[in-house]
Simulated assay, not measured.
Amino acid sequence: MEPVIGIGAWDVPVHGLFVGLGVLAAAVVFVAEARRRGAPAEQSLVAVTGALVGGAIGMRLSGWAEHLDPDLNPTLLEAWMFGSRSVLGGLTGAYVGVLVAKRLIGYRERTGDLFAPAVALGMAVGRIGCHLTEAPGRPTDLPWGVHAPAATPACPGCLAGQAMHPSFLYEVAFQLAAFAALWWLRGRITRPGELFTLYVAGYAVFRFLVEFTRANETVWLDLTRPQWFLLPGLLLVALRLRYGYRRGFYDALVPKKEVRT
């Protein structure tokens, strides 16, 4: 049974609470950035509404297509009622919600750069809920290994009392560092869309590496499903970064060397 926290007269699921707080934190940062960049207030409000609606839908339906075999997946109704409440699904839904809202009101400016720091902070908050309710990671002898309650779902190591990698805390630390870096870079990387590109690239690399400490099932060559999903994406990201570097998009970070003739 998922842990709950008492808020007034209600028992609120811990995981769902932090996922909701993560989506809310992302929305607040998005609004702040939209105002800083001079986006009209009405359009920003519509975009945030789209983010909140899309985030709620994505959060609830994130487990609908978890397995390649359709028979193993829940129905849409089951996913809506009993879904995994994934923070990544919530933030993905929020991003799609913004795109839909923009299309409805005819707003054509790019918003990916507004979303980059917003998603980083939202993920940091949401992963706290994952750490408190899910299997932490693979067994480890490192001094910062953590123990989780034996009742934690899908966690044999918890039942055996093993110390495990605090993989979700690794991600919290990464996302907070990414948020700080993106907040610092937002006035230095001026090419539209590149701040979002840098975040996606950084997170893709981090997520591939942190999977070696996660409790996810390995499916082939000791790699998990997310790692196999990320492999082609990492290649595309590398090509995209090379394209941006050669055109000077990141000179504020890594100035290109002049070639003398």
Rank of each mutant, 00 (worst) to 15 (best):
L61M: 11
L61K: 04
S62A: 15
G63L: 05
W64H: 07
W64V: 03
W64K: 03
A65M: 08
A65S: 09
E66A: 08
E66G: 01
E66W: 07
E66H: 07
E66I: 03
H67D: 02
L68T: 00
L68V: 00
D69N: 07
P70L: 09
D71N: 01
L72G: 03
N73Q: 01
N73R: 00
N73D: 00
P74D: 01
T75M: 11
L76V: 13
L77N: 06
E78M: 10
E78T: 08
E78F: 04
A79H: 05
A79T: 08
A79S: 15
W80V: 14
M81C: 06
M81N: 10
M81W: 10
F82G: 05
G83E: 13
G83S: 14
G83M: 13
G83F: 11
G83T: 12
S84P: 04
R85N: 15
R85G: 05
S86Y: 11
V87Y: 13
V87Q: 12
L88N: 14
L88E: 14
L88V: 15
G90I: 09
L91Y: 08
L91S: 04
L91A: 04
G93Y: 00
G93R: 02
G93C: 02
G93Q: 02
A94Q: 10
A94F: 11
A94V: 10
Y95Q: 11
Y95L: 15
Y95V: 14
Y95C: 12
V96P: 05
G97W: 03
V98P: 02
V98D: 01
L99N: 01
L99M: 06
L99C: 03
V100N: 01
A101M: 13
K102L: 09
K102Q: 14
R103A: 14
L104I: 15
I105N: 08
G106C: 06
Y107C: 03
Y107Q: 09
E109T: 03
E109I: 00
E109Q: 13
R110H: 13
T111I: 14
A116W: 10
P117Q: 09
A118V: 13
A118R: 11
A118I: 12
V119Q: 14
A120I: 11
A120D: 14
L121P: 03
G122I: 07
G122P: 09
G122W: 09
A124G: 10
G126I: 02
G126P: 01
G126D: 01
G126N: 02
R127A: 07
R127V: 11
I128Q: 00
H131C: 03
H131E: 11
T133F: 13
E134N: 10
E134W: 08
A135P: 01
A135T: 02
P136R: 08
G137I: 00
R138M: 05
R138Q: 05
T140V: 03
T140P: 02
L142S: 01
P143E: 02
P143Y: 04
P143M: 03
V146A: 05
V146Q: 07
H147M: 11
A148K: 06
A148H: 10
P149M: 09
A150L: 06
A150V: 09
A151D: 14
T152E: 08
A154R: 13
A154P: 00
